[in-house]
Design a protein around this nucleic acid. Sequence first.
DNA 1: GAGACCGTCTTTTTT
DNA 2: AGACGGTCTC
Length: 693
Amino acid sequence: MQIQELNKEQQKAVNHIDGPMLVLAGAGSGKTKVLTNRIVNLIENGISPYNILAITFTNKAAKEMKDRVVRLIGKEAYNIQISTFHSLGLKILKENYSMLGYEKNFTIIDSDDVLTIIKKILKDKNMSKDRYNPREIKNKISSAKNEMMSIDSFAKVEFDHKVVEVYKEYQQKLKNGNSVDFDDLLILPIKLFRNYPRVLEEYQDRYKYILIDEYQDTNEAQYTFSKLLSAKYRNIFVVGDNDQAIYAFRGANYKNILNFEKDYPEAKTILLEENYRSTKTILNAANSVIKNNHERKDKNLWSNNATGNKIKYKEVANEKEEASFVGTEIKRLLSEGINEEDIAVLYRTNAQSRVIEEEMLKKNIKYRVVGSFYFYNRKEIKDLLCYLRLINNHKDDVSLLRVINTPRRGIGDKTIETLTEEATTRELSLYETISKGKELEFKNLIEDLTKASESLSLTELIDEILEKTGIKKELSTSKLLEDEIRLENLNEFKGVTKSYEEEYGTASLGDFLDEISLVSDMSEHQDSSNRVSLMTVHSVKGLEFDYVFIVGMEEGIFPHYNAINDGSNSAIEEERRLCYVAITRAKKELYITSADTRMLFGNPMRNQPSRFIDEIDKEYIDKERPKKLEKIITKVRKTVDKNATYEVGEHISHTEFGEGIVISVDKSIITVAFPHPIGIRKLMKGHPNITKL
DNA sequence: GAGACCGTCTTTTTT
DNA sequence: AGACGGTCTC
Ligand SMILES: Nc1ncnc2c1ncn2[C@@H]1O[C@H](COP(=O)(O)OP(=O)(O)OP(=O)(O)O)[C@@H](O)[C@H]1O
């Protein structure tokens, strides 16, 4: 195949057919483009679409890639398996559930449910929430699963045997409820492959050609998954960039990509060095930031594009002004005829989206929040989903508990406690245990709805649920504005199911629920055209926009406190890679903002501009900050004593807040208690305003 | 068993 | 500032 728009190295990668290959290259060098075109080339070389497996990092990326391949070769492309690891895992699970001891229609539980289950276990085991943080335990369990630890090997690294107990109990609960969590979608197929080599071979024969995008962010389980699948034919083609590894917190290990040549000694490697995406200015700025990372191989990445405008950096007083600045600039761009879909606003944490959203509404700018679970996390939507899940899988105790008394049916803690006890002793699900009373009425209701589900379309079923459960009646007779909004949301949800049905013909309940679990991102079910995109830096990986705003470029936000306080160099380096990803998303123009004060948990928080701003070479950035501020800031910067040390309990005095006591000391921040009404403040160590007493 | 009230905790990032 | 869980009263 000869494609006009490919350079020599890219062409080489595209034309490669058999054997392992690694494409290691920087941002915007065309890795994804190469991967997509290689799929096309494989097909043109007579390889069946059924034998091709392409793995992307997000569902969104999978969809985009599929669309692109369809455009290039037509409908045949629908037969290629293009998906995330998790979706593929689910597919394999659905084809083999009984071998793993599950039943048809198993439920995929979301992270909220995981937390609910863990909290419940902690309570049952009388483990106090102060000593055992449910969130932390959830992370521990998830990491253990992603490193494919058995309970025994987990017990070797986790010395608190009670935590091990929780892990055990958690697994048991899932199994009893015929449910799996996200991590299971990866590790159950691996278990299947290991226990049944014949099954593995079937899949190896099916997926003879494997392509993986964003390989630098694979974790242990994903790594093993791909290694097993590719072992027979060794036709594995991976692309990635170690400078864009940003998922270490999820167990991803960028060494997987650097070790590729060790794993597959016969592998060919291709490096791409030309960036086709960004202006010279933007690319050079990104390069000047990333070169501050020391745990990295330097690579050459250049652009032949125009020089372009300098990056605009604006320092403002607070997050409201920041949003307002972004809003005004976007308005200006739009008035110049630029399309909404070519603009993105990026932030480090989801919490930052709120102010921006409000501003978009205020200025009447059309936007969408990518990666927002907000809609599916609303109470009324979750309730409805739990009804659907319960109808789909009667053993789903988590869902049952959520809806058995919603709306109120007079089934309280007492009843539930008795039921739970009986269910545990008889080793049955709660649903199976129900045999009398108001609970039975509820069970009969679910039975009826289950029957109805067999002959109704998804949307009709939802209507039936809302009607028969009394949800609709309760909400429509209520006078509360809140309830009116709830009803509206439920209607919007019906819009989602309707468009889902239209897209896939008639849709099965199970398939729909799976889809929701895997992509509970409202923006993916919405039309994205003519909207400004708002998203975290993590979710923008792999995408590109003409105009990009990076907001909240402050110490404490980006890099985040937790990374700073972690004290490890690698945590900061990951933040820096994240910054590199953010900058390299921009094609034409980049804006960076920082706020001096930002509300955090209802308290104003002072932040310095991010170190990453200083790391951008002066020639690529135009800094704008209030004149007065400039003097104060440079003065403060010069006089901060980085080596100041404090001890908990020490008395200090602050020029503004008066005397206080140090209550905790972190890497660069101390927390100080001041007398009423000032209260608890976080201060920068060695700040000139602080005097030791 | 339902609803009101108060104190605590939250936010790092995602499939 | 807002969500959530625990406790108290009817
Ligand atoms: N040879 C080429 N000629 C012109 N444009 C190209 C060429 N190769 C890639 N591009 C364009 O460059 C942009 C970046 O490509 P792509 O998204 O594939 O890069 P990438 O390496 O996957 O980037 P990242 O790692 O940052 O996600 C795309 O708009 C693509 O169309």
